[in-house]
Design a binder for these strands. Structure first.
Lengths: 223, 223
DNA sequence: AAATTATTTTAGGCATACCTAAATTATATA
DNA sequence: TATATAATTTAGGTATGCCTAAAATAATTT
């Protein structure tokens, strides 16, 4: 069996691979809040287990076996988040931290029961896709909110799950996955977005908008 | 924060203190499946944290602070068992193992939500009492089934939770906490018990009966 | 009381996973 | 191309928590 630390490394390598492509030791260490030397050590260990490929100074890549484990952990995490949210009413800005601890200890049996209870869901409370039991992830188009132009409408698809304060902020405007909004105004010089959510006008700073991803972008009818 | 190992030691010391009174290093080590030398090491560590008292060769005792932590962990464990059983349908012979891992990582917030969902219960699926938030345990009379005599009736109060096969065996006879039965026959020379459970006659071996504790013992009406 | 047996503790090792500091290798700049 | 800078790896150290083997202490038997 893998240690929790090893599982966290595999999960992080997977996420960074998705986000930035090549995963260097330094990037990985920064992401995990450890020193580069520690990352080197774990990478060597994972390599002996054939879970990653690695050539000195060239970055890490997951092997098929490593990716399978990474996706399993991510599935645990996201199912747990949704379960805590729906079954126990844990606020969405708290589920990430909680799931982070539980993902390493939950059994496949309990996971399957939660999956059934939730009706085999495909996204967590932040809109992130839940890999299925075989590690298959459904990828959908996700446009950063910062790409939107004035008068476009769209639906929130996903938001970053790590910053609890950001989530409370977005929650206060009802900006959950599934919520539709329309861009009223984009202030010039990288300024904030004014949007219309269910008839209410709300100002979203650019730094916040960078963490919101949308779907179903529609240009105004009267062009 | 305490390590999982330290929490397990405190919990075990508490349980052994209840069961056998004085807790020696050897007994503790055996209970935890570690060597006596390892137990000595952890006892020293817990002593520096003022969670146990210990004089060389004299056994361990929990301090008030140590007992509070032990009861907190036991509360986590038993609430989790009941939650897994009631909310997710995990069979009662599986909840112990599962809770054993979860008890160290569940937050007070999630625990409070499970407690509310369950309606502030006072016993786990095996009949063991759930300490309240302040560490208060309701103690009730628990007579070993082996003390019963022919024709007495009673109600199952509690069964050992650690042996999964035993639990499946008892479950197959519906011998859950709350189930009433009547002793039909006690075979001589430490032999098995024949009991009547809801009209069905069932034979319970003495070794099994040692792990069943009962309540509400009534002598036959026609004495 | 002395000797044997059992229990407990000390001493020294191993693996995990982190750290800092120094050495190495790669990359960018002059 | 040589040199400065940045990234990565190696080397050596810390803490946890387990182990075995040997020493110390306590309990039991003769």
């Amino acid at each position: 069996m893998l240690t929790h630390a090893a599982e966290d490394y595999l999960k992080s390598i997977y996420k960074l691979q998705e986000k930035v492509g090549k995963v260097s030791t330094g990037i990985l260490a920064e992401y995990l809040n450890v020193k580069p030397a520690s990352a080197t050590g774990m990478i060597k260990k994972l390599k002996t287990m054939k879970l990653v490929s690695h050539e000195r100074y060239q970055g890490v890549t997951l092997t098929d076996a490593g990716r399978a484990i990474a996706l399993e952990i991510i599935r645990h995490h996201r199912l747990l988040e949704l379960y805590l949210f729906k079954a126990l009413g844990v606020p969405w800005d708290g589920v990430h931290e909680e799931a982070e601890k539980l993902e390493h200890v939950i059994s496949e049996d309990v996971e399957a029961r939660m999956d059934e209870f939730l009706g085999y869901p495909t996204a967590d409370p932040h809109g992130a896709p839940i890999p299925d039991k075989n590690g298959v992830v459904i990828k959908t188009t996700r446009i950063p909110m910062t790409d939107l132009r004035e008068r476009q409408s769209c639906v929130v698809a996903e938001v970053s799950d790590t910053d609890s304060a950001l989530l409370r902020h977005l929650g206060s405007f009802n900006l959950y996955p599934g919520t539709a909004f329309r861009v009223v105004e984009v202030a010039p010089f990288e300024g904030p977005f004014t949007i219309d959510v269910a008839g209410q006008q709300v100002v979203i700073g650019r730094e916040v908008a960078k963490h919101v991803f949308v779907d179903d972008v529609q240009d105004p009818d009267n062009v």
